[in-house]
Design a protein around this nucleic acid. Sequence first.
DNA 1: AATGAATGAGCATTCATTCAT
DNA 2: CATGAATGAATGCTCATTCAT
Lengths: 210, 210, 210, 210
Amino acid sequence: MVSTHRAPATASADDPTPTTRSRDVRSRLVDVAAELFARHGFEGTSVQTVVEAAGVTKGAMYHHFTSKDDLLYEIYARVLRTQINQLLRIAELDLPVDQRVHAAAVDVVESTIASLDDSIIFFRSMHQLGPDKQMQVRAERRRYHERFRDMIEEGQRTGVFSSAVPADLVVDYHFGAVHHLSTWYREGGPWRATDVGNYFADMLLSALRP
Amino acid sequence: MVSTHRAPATASADDPTPTTRSRDVRSRLVDVAAELFARHGFEGTSVQTVVEAAGVTKGAMYHHFTSKDDLLYEIYARVLRTQINQLLRIAELDLPVDQRVHAAAVDVVESTIASLDDSIIFFRSMHQLGPDKQMQVRAERRRYHERFRDMIEEGQRTGVFSSAVPADLVVDYHFGAVHHLSTWYREGGPWRATDVGNYFADMLLSALRP
Amino acid sequence: MVSTHRAPATASADDPTPTTRSRDVRSRLVDVAAELFARHGFEGTSVQTVVEAAGVTKGAMYHHFTSKDDLLYEIYARVLRTQINQLLRIAELDLPVDQRVHAAAVDVVESTIASLDDSIIFFRSMHQLGPDKQMQVRAERRRYHERFRDMIEEGQRTGVFSSAVPADLVVDYHFGAVHHLSTWYREGGPWRATDVGNYFADMLLSALRP
Amino acid sequence: MVSTHRAPATASADDPTPTTRSRDVRSRLVDVAAELFARHGFEGTSVQTVVEAAGVTKGAMYHHFTSKDDLLYEIYARVLRTQINQLLRIAELDLPVDQRVHAAAVDVVESTIASLDDSIIFFRSMHQLGPDKQMQVRAERRRYHERFRDMIEEGQRTGVFSSAVPADLVVDYHFGAVHHLSTWYREGGPWRATDVGNYFADMLLSALRP
DNA sequence: AATGAATGAGCATTCATTCAT
DNA sequence: CATGAATGAATGCTCATTCAT
């Protein structure tokens, strides 16, 4: 995040995308907003603050986003896109199910820690989204949950995992812990992201032992 | 028009608590505020809305609470008081450590579900609290965490539990799941509170098997 | 309108109405708003302008009126109240019907000219009123129209007036002319209010001759 | 990219009107604006709304009109052009003066009803016009009034009409009723345009009987 | 204890217009 | 001719809090 701010639109003349400038504005706004919403909350951050930090005018922001709410939604969309892609990538690896679950369980911890700001916003500000957008986010979130659950169920069906606990609850248990990370995890604390990921994944796998 | 007009609800002089009426007003305000803050968020609920719902006037509210913030703090204080008492009660039972941990793990799920509103507020609105009060809440929360962790450590020391995962992370894992409940648990869904509590406690104990 | 502004609440101590102060604020706002809305239009007048001219703060205005719209409505209500009372007074006089119609026809012209500002607003800004309030105004306006029409019909039934033109259209014809006054009538022009009133009333009566 | 990219709709050099295409755009904009201004008011209609409804871009609109105000002015100009032509046509017929007045009185009602939208705008939005344009409109309007008044005066001079009421006031009386039409007349109501026109013209002539 | 009018700073949003391309 | 990103000032309205009574 060093030379991003106010970069004087140095897109080379042969840049094929005509929207380089506007992509700059859009994504700069989303980046800045994510940071501010995480630090001060959605309601605690004024549009004025966001646009000032992004170095654009209010009018420009409203040219690209229909509302403050819309800006928030874009943050959600960005997180969800990343997370689901990551999960699908792992779920389709050619590995035994317990190894896939372990890898996914580690990955969700690591990537959550990698963008803790997004995570803070995700669970704290969902209710600020309009009802329609909230439903879209929930639907996408459910897809994510279901894809993970399918792996658990696969393991249960094939006897690799215990069936003592319903797969849905297993997923909620693990994801709850992940969600909670933004509350207590701090960079420079006693554990690196990968440590926490492995500890949590190990606990998950232990809990699933037949 | 100073002391007329009001039924002489004169609390006896040696009564240490405020008058019955004012206790009524105080707790009615806290109750109403908890519901509204959970439903619409702290910033999404105006003081006007709260006092109207509680059937008192704004002036009355500011007589009992120094600020809107203070009202929020009272909600936190109420939750924390209840939770810590409950945990201490269980932790001091004369039972093997794994049974105590299991009981505590079930209980925290059940009591969280019993007052889901409080839980919604707890994690969503912490940052609305002033820095001082936020620190107080965090300190109390830490005490709670530590008391639970102590039980885990006791089990690890005595070989009842595996020491593979640091006790602190074990607690964070379980509490994360509990925290997450307010996001997905719904009355009338497939599981009763006690079911979820037992499933989660079972997973925790499974994960801790040596 | 000399010493009204900012009068230092000189209500004598034995003033029985407890709301003298707030009535001051309310009616001062309505007066000022009527003048400004007439001069610059409803949309062309900002709330800021109104409250500055009335010497109150924006918050105070919103304490008394729920919206800018509500302020406009109050102007309408005031006009309608006055007009309907005046018409009823005349309609109930013990005079032949043609004299009552003449008197009412003169009076509506005179009173419209007496408060031309209100009339300018009335027809220019109706559409700025919310749908509910617009309906209320229309209903009240219809009552007024109907009371006038009843007198015309009475004259037609009794043969004093010609029945060549439906009574409703007769009323619309005359009221149209009255409505139009705010477009062209100017104080200090060739005719006094009473002149115009009598000329118009004479034309109406002439048109109604059998 | 100056003169490329556009089909060579080259209007012949001696064609005094702008190119067909641009005439299309211009008049489409005026048409659409008239409808929107009538329905939502001038201030209640954004330039964005107008250009979207007309299927052109904002830039295109500002190419043809110097401002939103200018668009409004064009509506006024169009109405005035039509009305004055119509009046002159009738005033120059070779008929007795009372018949000419009757015909003109009917015609102004009918043509007003034929384009009620324009009439709504005419009286409601005059004050939105800049002072210069407002003066131009008023001047043209005065010409119209005077041409009508001349006919009345001709009738008064020749004894066909009563001189009891000044001709100017007679015109204001009738035109007021016409102006008012947009407030109450509705297609599909009890009277067709021609009915109302004849009733009103009859009243006017009756009122003018010596 | 309680009232309710008043404050005043702050907020999200709109919009006519400009201008480089 | 046309585009669409950008401007910047203005707007209606909210709200926690205060204070005279």
